[in-house]
């Protein structure tokens, strides 16, 4: 137990900060994922075939290719791409991107593909009459989406979004390969230092279990509150 003590003798405080890092990355990735979903859901639902192909390409690619491969692509290719853009503007120095940003972005792209599917499913399961009623009442396309479709969509999407959150939370363990000190990375450091991998990886598993358990409780509470409104 002294291995988990806070302060200089144990790894308690390090693991605590690593847990905060995992939570921070998960939330950031989830938000970045929403941004992607905001772009690609309309594309997937669009009338134009060309835009559909674009939207489908994103979700099929991300859901069919391992997360680790996407992370490697962004981790090794990310700074290259940014340096290329910078060189167009006449900046030729080496640019190193923050591991937090690139990690959140990578997990965000993955989480976005799942969110897109969730939002698409939610919009498609809204009764057609709602769209028609909005049209008949003379709402513009924009207001009918934000005032009528969007609130209903959110209610239908929340149960599935909680699954996406779980997936995102567990996926953040993969960005430990980029060197960002989150739970997995910290456990690796601690177990290399103390030669006690069994203990520290079990602790890492336990922290993840607690995180998934607590977030489920929180989401269920939120869901109950939100659902009662309707």
């Amino acid at each position: 137990m002294e291995l988990l003590a806070f302060g200089k003798t144990g790894w308690g405080d390090e693991l605590f900060y690593a847990t905060l890092m995992t939570i921070a990355v998960s939330i950031t990735s989830m938000l970045i994922g929403f941004l992607f979903a905001l772009i690609f859901t309309p594309l997937k639902l669009s009338k134009y075939k060309f835009l559909n192909i674009f939207g489908n390409f994103y979700t099929t690619l991300i859901r069919g290719v391992p997360e680790l491969l996407v992370i490697y692509l962004l981790f090794f290719g990310g700074s290259g791409a940014i340096m290329y853009v910078a060189s167009i503007f006449g900046y030729f120095e080496y640019i190193e991107i923050n591991a937090f940003l690139i990690g959140s972005f990578a997990i965000g792209i993955i989480s976005g593909a799942y969110s897109t599917e969730v939002f698409r499913g939610a919009i498609q399961s809204i009764d057609k009459g709602q769209f028609e009623a909005a049209k008949v009442l003379g709402f513009s396309k924009f207001t009918s989406f934000y005032k009528i479709i969007f609130p209903q969509m959110l209610r239908l999407a929340i149960p599935n979004l909680s699954n996406v959150w779980q997936i995102t939370l567990k996926d953040t363990s993969l960005i430990s390969v980029t060197g960002l000190v989150e739970i997995m990375r910290q456990s690796r450091i601690a177990s290399a230092f103390t030669r006690d991998p069994l203990f520290f990886y079990s602790i890492a598993g336990l922290i993840f279990l607690i995180l998934t358990f607590l977030s489920m409780k929180l989401i269920n509470k939120f869901e109950a509150k939100f659902m009662n409104k309707g």
Binding site: S176, L198, G205, L209
Partner: peptide, 23 residues
Amino acid sequence: SYIFRGTPLLVQIFIIYFGLAQL
């Protein structure tokens, strides 16, 4: 099923590969 679905697969591999070698 709760434990294996609630923790990342990476943790599970590491426990089995690095962790069990310690016993």
